[in-house]
Structure formats: structure tokens, C-alpha cells
Design a binder for these strands. Sequence first.
DNA 1: TTGTAGGCGTTATCAC
DNA 2: GTGATAACGCCTACAA
Lengths: 347, 347
Amino acid sequence: MTSADTRKLKKPRSSSTGRVTLADIAERVGVATITVSRAFRTPSIVADGVREKIEQAARELGYLPNRAASTLASARSMNVAVLVPSISNVVFVDTLRGVDEVLRVKGYQLLIGITGYDSREEERQLRKFVPYGPDGIILTGFEHSEESWRLLGRTGVPTVHMMELTEDRNRYCVGFSQEAAGFDLTRHLIERGRRKIAFVGVQLDPRTLRRYEGYRRALTEAGLYDRNHELLLSEASSIRLGGPLLELMLAKAPDTDAIFFCNDDIAHGALFQCLRRGISVPDQLAVVGFNDLDASAHTVPALTTIATPRREVGREAAKMLVLLMAGEHPDTHSLDLGYSLKVRESS
Amino acid sequence: MTSADTRKLKKPRSSSTGRVTLADIAERVGVATITVSRAFRTPSIVADGVREKIEQAARELGYLPNRAASTLASARSMNVAVLVPSISNVVFVDTLRGVDEVLRVKGYQLLIGITGYDSREEERQLRKFVPYGPDGIILTGFEHSEESWRLLGRTGVPTVHMMELTEDRNRYCVGFSQEAAGFDLTRHLIERGRRKIAFVGVQLDPRTLRRYEGYRRALTEAGLYDRNHELLLSEASSIRLGGPLLELMLAKAPDTDAIFFCNDDIAHGALFQCLRRGISVPDQLAVVGFNDLDASAHTVPALTTIATPRREVGREAAKMLVLLMAGEHPDTHSLDLGYSLKVRESS
DNA sequence: TTGTAGGCGTTATCAC
DNA sequence: GTGATAACGCCTACAA
């Protein structure tokens, strides 16, 4: 099957850089480079014998494909850019995992960008990623710079937004209503008989603010809203802030009988402070958080919070993107995955 | 400055795909594509007027560079692949941040891979990333599959290993001695008068095992080693495991007067369980962890632990890689950044 | 300071 | 099933 092969094959020019290329394999096996390419990409359309020889040659030569060349020639990168505010926040790590689970089996590689909750940084990231020719883009939320929106429009790359919802039918999104969740959690406190319900918010990203709006709506509807019971700071969230924020809130409004912390991290810090100070939770003070982190079921007392379907958000956003990248239309432009109230000991 | 330009310029072939390319800008401005390329990459060597016209044309046309083309032509990707076991673990998130801080200002883009503490998955990731033509690679630790090592050798891409050290002068690494840290932490407990010191380990990745070796060496040297006081499980680490592991350990060896948890996460879970059970820490039982997570200074009681310089590890590993990518030689092949014992209330 | 020529490694297209 | 040819968009080398 070797020397008998006397067809005149235009000798594939072997690499000049020393790297092993398709042409090297082609030469070794005695076929055209395109056949080698096919043997890897669509093995079924290459004759068995040829395919096997190609595979063996590839192994022997230590062939490694070159994505840059493939991307350039095919105009498909098999990359998906995913931008999240932070990976110090488990919420987004879980979301990324969901995205990855779905996309990796489809052969896509994630390009992960961290925006630091900053639209300008997000724009910078986007500008960095677009040259990679991503086949799709996944963003967090809807707060993007003018230029980011323009960039997305110009490139025409299919895009899905995560973690928030929109009415805009031109946008695809997967998430849940942060506002409704904030509302429900506050209603829970009202129903437990609390009347001086405070809100402590940090970071103040769009999702935190939506939760705050839900809180406010619930209290306003119940005639309990009192602006003296809220504390909004733009500091980055962290467990260490919990204690001081608790103190600050109680100093500001000593009659507070419940605190809605905008996320579980600062709620944990606050619970520790309650332990140190001997503040009895929930007797003296109810404490609730948001996100249902791993630790929240185990704190003392266990923390009442909102469980968010972030992994599912990631998975569904990825599925939606896969459809869009295939030129198909998802059933809905806006997928609401809901949330669930976890009532535990702290309220 | 426009129509007077009657030099015969080989008309840059404009894109056939509709995308805006360097050639489009070149045509518009009346220069060669290479000049446009230079205007972006080394602006200083292009005449001011020309450069400005090029920049304006780029803006007007909405030019976006194509990394695949540039990578293919230059054989430099400006990508660096970084493989870490997990990003659910803050330790590696901090390390990644350190790496990114240094590499991004040098213009490198991170390709982040999650290996799930699994050599085979790591090998898969490596196989996926090598085709991207990374200019450098950063790996966690030294436990890699045969094939991974071979791949690294074949590609010849500069590589730095993080979080552990090696004597092997052919390898570059930045980290600290996990074994020595485990030893020191155990010594601390001994010096505090503890005699029945237990070790509880999960995940059992190489770094955890090195800590365990340090623990064992300290106890053996002190004549206190007792295999009945150790609990090693391959479960993934999580705060929820802390409580049950504490119970298990105490059931196995009720005389235990101190527990060295292999990381802060499970130590936190254990501290919560102590609160619930009314086990007085440190009076009845000393508890120590490893890593000094954010929460550890705030738990009740505050947790004694080893603070690890993970962000610095990331930064220094990146710096070392930058040198290697430039073909230079770092001062040392193995950079030890140390660690520090944080004595708090729990011991 | 600017330009010409040619190639980087792969794939689309059309032919056989 | 397989091949020749011509891109893909940019950059290196060398030349002017």
C-alpha cells in the first residue's frame, strides 16, 4: 500500500518553521493535506485505511493542530467569550461552571473575562476578546457602555445576557427577577412580624439595586418604609464588612428588628458579630442574606436567604447561545429561572 | 494630501468577506497594509500625519484586528495558558489574580483552564490549549501525566509551576513549602501543650499530602504520632463537610485535644459544629486550618491558620514566565515565598 | 519612513 | 473519496 502509490501528488510544502503541520503528515502518508484535514475533522468521509495511516503518522510525528490557522481559514474560532464581574464571588464561579458544562461538550472553549463590576473594564475586555473572533458572547446583566453595545452590534456576534431579565425582544437573556426576590424576602420578614426592617447593601451593582427596589416596594406597600433603615455603600462586598455594617446599622437605627443584607457574605460577617456581641438571632434581630452560599446552611444560626439558580442560569444561557450560533431561534428571548426562599433559623 | 498622491501602490486587496481589514484602511488612506499594521503596533515609526489618518480611517470603518491572522503570521499568540485545579477555591482565584495583574500589563491574555484536581483532565486541557500556540504556560504543582510532560517537552513552551517547589533545576517554580508549613503549624499546637493532635484531610491533592507529611514529621519528632488521630478522605473539600468530619474524628478518638484541618473551609464548618455542640474552643479542643481565608479572622472563635502568599505566588510566577518568554534567565529556578503562622483564638 | 514579496497552517470550493 | 487551487488577514524580511 506504500510504494505502489505512484499518483502524481503535488508535494505538500512541509513546514519551514520546524513545527509539524498537516502537510508533513500528508507527505509522509502520500495524500493531499486536505485529506489529512478531513481525516481529523470528518473522519467518516475518509477511507478507513487512509485514515488509520494518517492517525498513525500524526502520532509518530507528534502533530499538534494550529488553531490560529484553522480559525483564519474557516472563520470559526470555536471560542465563546464570557464576561463576569468577579470570580471571587462564588455566584459567578457557579455560573461559569454551568456555561462551561454545556459549551465544552459542543467543542467550544471559554474565554473568561473579569470586569470587576466596571463597565469600562468590561468594554476593554470586550475589545480584547472580539479580535479572537468569538462565535458567541455571554455577558452579565444589561449595564454596558455605549461603546460596548456598539461593538456588539458591529460584530453581529450572537450574545446572551445572564442574571437579569429584560423586556427588550432584541436581547436574549437568562436569569430571574432580582426585584421579585428582594420583594419576597422582605415580605417574609413582614409576615414574621418584623416592622423595623433594614436593608444593608454594598457593591451596588445593578442586581443589588434591583433587590433593594424589591425590598423598598414590599415595605412601601406595607406602609413600613423608612429611609432611616437603609445603608447603601459602594464598597466591594466581603465578609469582613459584615460586622462593622451591622454595628453601623444598629447605631443608626437602634430599633431595627430585622436586617436584609444584600448578600450572604456580609450576612455571615454580621452573624459572627452577633455571636460576639451576644445579640440573639432571631429573637432580638432577624438576619437574612441573598444567594444561599454553601456556608449559609451551616452558620449559627443557619441563615435565611434566597437560593439563586446560578448554575442553571449558566447552563441555560449556554444552551440559548448554542441555538443562536447555529442560526436557530430559541423559544423565548427571555428565560426566567426563578429563585427560592430558604427559611432557616436566622429569621 | 489626497489626490496628489500618485505613487503607484499595489492596490491592497480589500476583504472579500465583508470584514474590515488592514487592507481596507490602507486603501482608504493610500498606503500599504504594512504601514497600517505598523501604525498600530509601533506607532512611533510611522509619520505623524499618516498615523493620524490611519487611526481616523480605522475609527470610521470600525476596524477590528484579527488575532488569528496575527498569531499565524507572527508565530506569537500573546496568550498564556494557566491551569488551576479549581476556581471554587479562593486560593486559586487569588493566584490567578496575581498572574493576571502582571501579565495583562505586558499585553498577554490568560487562557484559564480548570483541571478539577485531575491529571487526566489537566492533560485534556493542555491538549486543548497547546493548539492556541500559547507563548507561555503556568501549571499548578508538579503532578502531571506522562503525556502532559511529553507535550510540554515537545512544544518547548516556557513553563512555570506554582504553589510547590522542586529541587529539579530543569523546572521553574514559585511557591512555598507546604510540608514546612504543616510542620510549623503542628509545632505550634505542641508548644501550646496539646498532646493528642489530630489531622483531618480531604481532597488529598499533592499539597494537602505535603501538609500532612509536615504534621506527621512534627508529631513523630515529638514522639506524639498516633495513626489513630488521623482522618484522610478523598472527598472534595467543602464547608459542609466540616461538622461531620469533626464528629467523626471525635468519635474515632475522643481524647483528641487539637485538630489540624487541612484547610480553612472545613475548619470553618467544624467551628460551627463546635458552637452548636457546645464544644469550647480552644479550651476543650484547639482547631487550626490552612490558607487564612477572609472569613478566618472573623469566625467565632477566630481561626488559627497558615497565611499563604498566593497572590504573590501568582505575581512572581508570571514575572518569572515573562523572563523565560523573553529568552532570559530568572535568578533562581525555584522561588520560595514562605508563609506565615496566624495565631488566633482557636488555639 | 515606507513598500514588495511571500508565507504562516488550515479550510472552502469546485473538480475529478 | 480525494485533490488542486486559492484564499483567510497579518507579519517577517528585505529593499528602497
